[in-house]
Amino acid sequence: MKSTLVIQNLKCGGCANTITTKISSLEYITDVEVDVETSSVSFTFQNANELQKVKEKLAHLGYPIDGDKNSVVSKAISYVSCATGKMSN
């Protein structure tokens, strides 16, 4: 199945790089694409359990799903994730 999630705190290519790398490393998740302009991430998954794992991983990286709580801590974590993504380019 294919899903597209709108996420918060997505700012640049560094963020996109981190998200792509971390989400692609999850088992049974393929075809990960991040669109900075629409603040969205698209991917293919096999079942609802994997979809939930992606949502949890995004929140852990500081990119909660649009509509979920976006705390100051989430925003700070996203800056670290962004910097990590920029350094690994």
Results as ranks from 00 to 15, higher is better:
81 S>I: 07
21 T>C: 03
22 K>C: 14
58 L>D: 03
24 S>P: 09
6 V>G: 13
3 S>E: 01
54 V>C: 02
40 S>Q: 10
60 H>N: 02
21 T>K: 11
52 Q>A: 11
66 D>C: 00
38 T>E: 15
66 D>T: 00
48 A>K: 06
11 K>Y: 04
50 E>V: 04
80 V>C: 07
51 L>F: 11
61 L>S: 08
72 V>N: 05
28 Y>R: 15
70 N>P: 11
58 L>E: 02
37 E>M: 07
33 E>H: 09
48 A>W: 01
4 T>Y: 06
41 V>S: 06
6 V>E: 15
88 S>Y: 07
34 V>Y: 05
16 A>S: 15
3 S>Q: 03
57 K>E: 15
82 C>V: 04
32 V>M: 05
27 E>Q: 08
73 V>Q: 03
56 E>W: 02
53 K>V: 00
47 N>Y: 03
41 V>A: 06
33 E>V: 15
82 C>R: 00
21 T>S: 11
22 K>V: 09
54 V>D: 01
25 S>Y: 09
68 D>R: 04
17 N>V: 09
21 T>V: 03
84 T>W: 08
72 V>P: 07
13 G>T: 04
78 S>A: 10
86 K>D: 11
46 Q>C: 09
48 A>T: 00
60 H>M: 00
33 E>P: 05
20 T>F: 04
5 L>G: 07
40 S>K: 08
28 Y>M: 13
70 N>L: 01
38 T>M: 12
79 Y>V: 13
84 T>R: 10
45 F>I: 10
